[in-house]
Design a protein around this nucleic acid. Structure first.
Length: 170
DNA sequence: CGCCTTTGACCGGCGC
DNA sequence: GCGCCGGTCAAAGGCG
């Protein structure tokens, strides 16, 4: 199979992608999710990608892919990522929802080194928002949170399920 | 040249 | 006890 070799580190999208996004009347902003509602670590969240988006949703951190597997009964393979930072035991698993190809279920495992790490993470997320939207954090209220539910996770006691879609109104 | 992705194989856990 | 499934490891190849 043809595969794009090279880096596949997930990090905040460059500002160059902002232009194409703002051409649409609205677009889903994924990176803002954890700024507003930081999920437990480990935890699980659902994020939605824009049509044509090539990579799984970003969360502001750098992840290194270490495995991929086609799970029985699932249409799309699961992808396994590990935090690219050295000595960091954080992992995450990305599963594509069969019925909604643009929605990804991201399951976080392990934890980052320290609270400082988490703080840095949130800072990176904020920067990602500012970069993508070109606005300050204080103006995040301009985003209309179209969906945002938080329900108990029925399969794990370690977190809650976040199903969130943040839509930018122009 | 170094780092990262891909991919097949291996190992452990769980269910029957 | 056996078989199946899911998660991780390690080697090879490719790209920047």
């Amino acid at each position: 199979m043809m595969m794009s070799k090279g880096k596949e580190i997930i990090h905040p999208a460059p500002s160059s992608s902002t232009a194409s996004q703002q051409e649409s009347p609205h677009f889903s902003l994924i990176v803002a999710l954890r700024v507003v509602t930081a999920p437990p670590n480990p935890g699980r969240e659902y994020v939605e990608a824009r049509p044509g988006e090539k990579i799984p949703p970003e969360d502001g951190l750098s992840w290194r892919k270490y495995g991929q597997r086609l799970v029985l009964g699932e249409k799309y393979p699961r992808k396994y990522y590990r935090c690219a930072r050295c000595c960091c035991g954080a992992t995450k698993m990305i599963r594509r929802i069969d019925t909604e190809p643009l929605t990804f279920e991201v399951t976080y495992g392990g934890s980052h080194n320290s609270d400082q790490e988490n703080n840095n993470q949130n800072e990176q997320l904020l920067l990602a928002v500012q970069t993508q939207v070109g606005r300050t954090v204080g103006e995040l209220s301009d985003f209309y949170i179209r969906e945002m539910v938080s329900t108990p996770n029925n399969s794990s006691s370690t977190g809650v399920v976040f199903s969130t879609r943040i839509q930018y109104l122009t």
